[in-house]
Design a protein around this nucleic acid. Structure first.
Lengths: 109, 109
DNA sequence: CTCGCATATGTCGTGATTCTATACGTGTAG
DNA sequence: CTACACGTATAGAATCACGACATATGCGAG
C-alpha cells in the first residue's frame, strides 16, 4: 500500500518545510517523513524536490544547517528556522489561507 | 485600488477555468473577469496565463470553442465544457480538496 | 471627430519549481 | 554478508505562470 503520489503544488513545498521546522530542528530525510505523517500519508515529498528546496531556503537565509548525529547514530544535516524564516513562515501561512479561501469562493460560485 | 496580484499556484488555473465554464459558456476575457469577481478580487488571471491555458484545455478536448458575438457586439471565442471536461473537473475538484485538507493537517500539526 | 479606454485574443521568452532517475555512502538486522 | 532503511545529493526534463509585447475594435468624452 504505497502512498499515493502527491503532485505537490508549486509553491507549497517551502511552506510545508518551514512549518515542519517550526516544531523543532530536523534533517531533510526526517522532514519528508514528518510531512508524510502529518498529512496522513497524502503529501509525499520527493528527494529530488526536497534537497534543492532545502538548499534554496538556506541560500535565502530562512533556515540554517548543522551536521549532527541523527537518532540512528548516523550523520545528518539538521536544519533550523532562522528569525527571517519564522517571519517568512507567517507570510506564507497568510498567503496560503488567503489563496485557499479564494479558491473556495470560486468553487462555490 | 488595483486588485492584488495573485501569484496563481501552478496547477490550479485549469480547475478555476473548468469550474467557471461549468456555469455557462464564456469567452476568455469573460472567464478572467468572472474568476476575479467570484474570488472577491483575489485571483487575477493574467492574459499570458489565460490564453495558453485555454488552448491547452482545448487541445486536450476538455473544452470546445466557437466564435460568437459577445455582449458588446464584438466577436469573441466562446468556450464550453465538453463531457470529458466535466469529468476532468470532478477529478480536479477532488484532488484540490484532498490536497487542501492535507496541507491543513500539516499546518495544524 | 478624435483620442483614449475597456474589450478581446494571442505569442514569446523567461524564470521558478517539481519530478524522475541516478549516484553514493553507512549502520543494522537477519 | 547481504539486503534494507537511513541519509544526502545532482542532472536533465517537463510544466506552467508571468511580464512584455502586438493587434484590433466599439464606444464615450471632450
Amino acid at each position: 500500500m504505497e502512498p499515493k503520489k502527491s503532485e505537490l503544488l508549486q509553491g507549497t513545498l517551502d511552506l510545508l518545510i518551514l512549518k515542519t521546522l517550526l516544531l523543532d530542528p530536523l534533517h531533510g530525510y526526517g522532514i519528508a517523513q514528518r510531512i508524510l505523517a502529518s498529512s496522513r500519508e497524502v503529501l509525499q515529498v520527493q528527494q529530488g524536490s526536497l534537497y534543492p528546496a532545502l538548499h534554496r531556503l538556506e541560500r535565502k537565509g530562512l533556515i540554517a544547517s548543522e551536521w549532527k548525529d541523527s537518532e540512528t547514530a548516523r550523520m545528518a544535516k539538521y536544519y533550523a528556522l532562522t528569525k527571517a524564516g519564522k517571519a517568512q513562515l507567517q507570510t506564507e501561512l497568510e498567503q496560503w489561507r488567503r489563496y485557499a479561501r479564494a479558491i473556495g469562493w470560486v468553487l462555490q460560485s
